[in-house]
């Protein structure tokens, strides 16, 4: 593939695709100083290494990328070379417009056909993985190449095709990431990671889809594995964590019961109260009364 760069605003291929900021291939045959400084990323950028070896700073540290590797940079993350040097080698890249909502959800515009739930799950996985380096994934390079071809040839249906390819890239990388992060031989480790993610965001309305995706498993196998490992279904295990956290908060008189309900992920104080009572025999109010002390 030859070197090229399409830029939003100046390349007419991108006129129908306002969400694509840049698409290109860089082939660099000699070291260039000050050509690759660290910048704060706006939007989401994908890099696919074709050739050479790159020392890049991604988000919070220095990493080495080899041919076949993908680096994905999310909005607000720092990216570039610590020495600002562009090393010898080649890579393709795709830069698209996307924002972070509430620091935990990637917002893609209407062009994407991913559903709301799917985007939530993908965002969770991408944001929890650090760094976002996916190794040995030639398929990603092929997709970026296809996007370029569609844009150049403009055959019938290319508008839909280009956008589908970008969705496909998100799906491919997310799936590969969960597999890479969760080698099948160690479910204990996978489960501890999941447990940690649940605890860090216990207020979130977790779905089984999201949890299964984080564990890098399909829903059916995930349910089965969690049940045999913990004795509980994934959602019931989650209830254990929610109620344990709620108990700690109930023992602190200054937090209101409604706040506790929402902070621990129940969708209403009624839902909290029913679940709590079913498990402990006490309503949250009664439990608090039994465990409150006048100093």
């Amino acid at each position: 593939m030859n070197q090229f760069v399409l830029i939003q605003g100046s390349s007419e291929e991108l006129n129908l695709f306002p969400h694509i900021i840049e698409l290109g291939v860089i082939k660099n045959s000699s070291i260039q100083l000050n050509a690759f400084p660290k910048v704060l990323m706006q939007g989401v950028k994908f890099f696919y290494v074709l050739d050479g070896k790159f020392h890049w700073y991604i988000h919070d540290g220095e990493y080495i990328l080899f041919p076949g590797d993908v680096a994905m940079i999310l909005p607000g993350q720092e990216f570039g070379s610590s020495t600002a040097v562009l090393e010898v080698g080649s890579f393709s890249f795709l830069h698209i417009n996307a924002d972070l909502k509430d620091a935990d959800e990637i917002v893609l515009d209407k062009w994407s056909s991913l559903s709301g739930n799917e985007i939530t799950a993908i965002s969770k996985i991408l944001l929890l993985s650090n760094p976002l380096i996916i190794t040995k994934i030639n398929e990603a390079g092929r997709i970026i190449k296809c996007i370029h071809q569609e844009l150049s040839n403009q055959e019938v249906g290319y508008f839909a095709r280009v956008n589908n390819h970008i969705d496909e890239l998100f799906i491919l990388l997310t799936r590969q990431l969960t597999r890479q992060n969760n080698p099948g031989r160690d479910f204990h480790k996978t489960f501890m990671k999941l447990d940690d993610a649940l605890r860090k965001d216990i207020a979130h309305q977790w779905t089984v889809d999201e949890m299964a995706a984080l564990a890098g498993l399909g829903n059916t196998l995930f349910n089965e594995k969690v049940k045999s490992y913990t004795g509980f279904t994934p959602l019931n295990y989650l209830i254990n964590i929610r109620i344990s956290e709620a108990i700690k908060l109930l023992k602190k008189p200054q937090v209101s019961i409604t706040d506790i309900a929402f902070d621990t992920g129940f969708y209403s104080s009624q839902h909290f109260s029913t679940t709590f009572k079913k498990l402990t025999g006490f309503t949250p109010g009664e439990f608090r009364k039994n465990n409150s002390y006048n100093e």
Binding site: F232, N240, I247, L279
Partner: peptide, 28 residues
């Protein structure tokens, strides 16, 4: 029946468990 609860290793040599989660898991 059994119910699992996690062990946290926040530092080398540390091995901790949440007493509330153990209690709730036992009750459940």
């Amino acid at each position: 029946m059994k119910g699992y609860y996690p062990t946290f290793h926040t530092q080398p040599d540390y091995s901790e468990q949440d007493p509330e989660q153990i209690f709730i898991t036992m009750l459940y």
